[in-house]
Each structure stands twice: as structure tokens, then as C-alpha cells.
């Protein structure tokens, strides 16, 4: 049986997306100094797909870019959720999102991408330190959905500083919480599994990750971990020139258009498919210029090499980008 419904479905993304924008849809305190932001597209359209472990690059209004793990539910294709701890001594991104970003404000985004994928292991230990819980939330829900044998060790300096503590403790004795103010200094090695079949995932402060990484010989496999290394990540959306070397054509790329759109304007053909930086169809070799990667597919090595980019979403950090087109 079928029924007719009045509200139309969201439209597919336009064939050529311009600026990729998110709107702050909701704000919520989830721990001391930690705010959760719910983000959506201004037109409510579907967002690019992601899997547990993925993070989003948010480009702040001044052009600084920051990475945040997605901690929401991917069965909701229309919103992203992140949680941000206020780092007064940080580089300013968290302070901006805490103190200035209001509901309705717009932020540019890149990705999402994933350097912290889950593997199909039947037994899982998740180790989260403080705000490092964010990538673990979708992992944990996935482990539950797949009926895996999972454990979560959740460590922090105080209970009040641990985001999502109530909902996690409600999951029962598979969750171990260790707050330094109550329980004293944690003996991380006490969490090390004896069974080599347990896949370990960890996200948290560097010192914690170093300790978990040292388990590798005893575990017989490398624990998987997410380290958000500080990297040169200023990415102002400035105009630049793109040169199609083989076609012998050059054209400026405006601040609000894609490389693909600029090239099409001057008759250079770039076939795209998803136009979202996901499918890889438009991958193009870079001959000169530093790419500003905004896609979801290239891994860290390919990004650092800078030898190719996805012109449907990515841009250039220099004044001039020469492509093998």
C-alpha cells in the first residue's frame, strides 16, 4: 500500500556545487567546556556519506581550518554532529566555535574523510581520553549494531569534563570510566587486552596514544589511533588562476566557483560524477601549485604528495595551479 505525502524529498546536490556550506542548526553543552554543534546544509539537502572514524574540516570565517570527528548518526543523512572542547591555549578554532558561532551561522567545510576506519574485527576495545570520545561514539554504536564483543575505556581528568558520560554509563558494564579526580592516575596498561583478536582503537591526548601504541608487540597488531597533528591548515578561499597545460588555456577561479566550473567556462572538459569529492571520477594530475584538498577520497599520502586533486571541490593554496588537462 502506498500513500501520497505533501512534502517533497530533498533535491539531489546540484551538478556543480559552489561553496560547500554548513549552517549551525543547534548548540548544546555536553560537558564542562564542551559544546556540541549540529550542522546541516542551508537548503537541507543530503550531506556526503561518512563512516565511523571520519572527521570534517571546518573552515572558519578567517580562513583557518580545523578538524573535528563526526560523532552523530550516519543514518541521518541531513545533519553532521561534532563536539568541541574549548582550548583557551589552542590555535583559536575552538574558542571561535564556543564563543562566536551562533545558530544560523554559516561555515565552509571540506571532506568528510576518514583516517581512522573500523575493520571487521569481532572483538573491539575502544580507548577514549576526554574529547577523544567523539570518533568513538559512532564506532561504539556500530559495534552494538553488529553485536560485536566490545569494551570502552573512557578516561579524563574529572567526570564533569567527560562528554556524553550519562549516555555512555547507561550502556552498562562494558564501559569503564576513569576520572582522575575520583579514581587517581590511570594505569593504562591495566586495560591492555590479553587476547590478540581484540582490535584496539584509541583517540585522546598524545601521551595516552603513545602508551597505547607501545602495546603493539604484546598485542600482535598495531592499535588503530587518530592523532590530529597540528598542520599548516590555513585555507583562505582566495581567487587563483588555473592553467590547463595540455589545452593551453588559463582562467581565474573565483572565490565562489569550483575549478571544474571555471574550466568549463573556457571550454576545458572535466567529467565529474558525484560533484562532491567522493567518487574520484574527476581526479586530475597536478603539475604545479599546492592543492587545497577538500575531497573525501585521497589518503594522507596522496594529499601530502600533492600530485593529484579532485577539482570538483578542491582548490589551490597558491596563486596558480597547473593541471595536466
Amino acid at each position: 500500500m502506498t500513500t501520497t505525502q505533501d512534502d517533497a524529498r530533498p533535491q539531489p546536490a546540484p551538478a556543480v556545487a559552489g561553496v560547500r556550506t554548513l549552517v549551525v542548526d543547534a548548540r548544546r553543552e555536553v560537558a564542562e567546556d564542551t559544546v556540541e554543534l549540529t550542522l546541516r546544509r542551508p537548503d537541507g539537502a543530503r550531506l556526503p556519506d561518512w563512516a565511523p572514524g571520519a572527521h570534517l574540516d571546518l573552515v572558519l570565517p578567517d580562513g583557518r581550518s580545523r578538524q573535528y570527528s563526526l560523532c552523530g548518526d550516519r543514518w541521518d543523512a541531513h545533519t553532521y554532529r561534532i563536539a568541541v572542547r574549548r582550548e583557551a591555549q589552542g590555535r583559536g578554532g575552538s574558542v571561535y566555535l564556543h564563543d562566536e558561532a551562533q545558530i544560523g551561522d554559516r561555515l565552509e567545510f571540506a571532506g568528510p574523510r576518514n583516517n581512522f576506519r573500523m575493520t571487521p574485527a569481532p572483538r573491539v576495545l575502544l580507548i577514549a581520553g576526554g574529547i577523544g570520545i567523539t570518533p568513538m561514539l559512532p564506532m561504539l554504536h556500530q559495534a552494538i549494531a553488529l553485536e560485536l564483543d566490545w569494551r570502552l575505556a573512557y578516561l579524563g581528568r574529572s567526570r564533569a569534563s567527560l562528554p556524553y558520560l550519562d549516555e555512555l554509563e547507561a550502556l552498562g558494564d562494558r564501559v569503564t570510566v576513569h576520572a582522575k579526580d575520583v579514581d587517581g592516575r590511570a594505569d593504562l596498561d591495566s586495560f591492555r587486552p590479553d587476547d590478540p583478536a581484540v582490535q584496539v582503537y584509541a583517540c585522546g591526548p598524545e601521551r595516552m596514544l603513545d602508551a597505547v601504541e607501545a602495546w603493539a608487540p604484546a598485542l600482535g597488531h598495531a592499535p588503530r589511533m587518530e592523532r590530529f597533528a597540528a598542520r599548516a591548515d590555513d585555507r583562505p578561499r582566495t581567487p587563483f588562476e588555473v592553467v590547463a597545460a595540455r589545452s593551453g588555456v588559463a582562467t581565474p577561479v573565483g572565490a565562489d566557483e569550483t575549478i571544474v566550473a571555471a574550466l568549463r567556462r573556457v571550454g576545458v572538459d572535466v567529467i565529474t560524477s558525484c560533484a562532491q569529492g567522493v567518487c574520484g571520477t574527476c581526479e586530475t594530475n597536478v603539475l604545479e601549485g599546492t592543492p587545497d584538498h577538500r575531497d573525501s577520497v585521497l589518503d594522507e599520502r596522496s594529499r601530502d604528495e600533492g600530485a593529484c586533486l579532485l577539482p570538483c571541490v578542491s582548490r589551490c593554496l597558491d596563486r596558480r595551479l597547473v593541471l595536466d588537462l
Binding site: A51, M118, L146, E283
Partner: peptide, 16 residues
Amino acid sequence: PRHDAPRYVLQEILSP
């Protein structure tokens, strides 16, 4: 989620 790992692995092997 069962689709994730096989898809990711094959997508990398067959990437441009």
C-alpha cells in the same frame, strides 16, 4: 556497516 570495509578496500585498489 557491513559494506564499509570491503568497499573502502576495493575502492583504493581500483583508484585512479
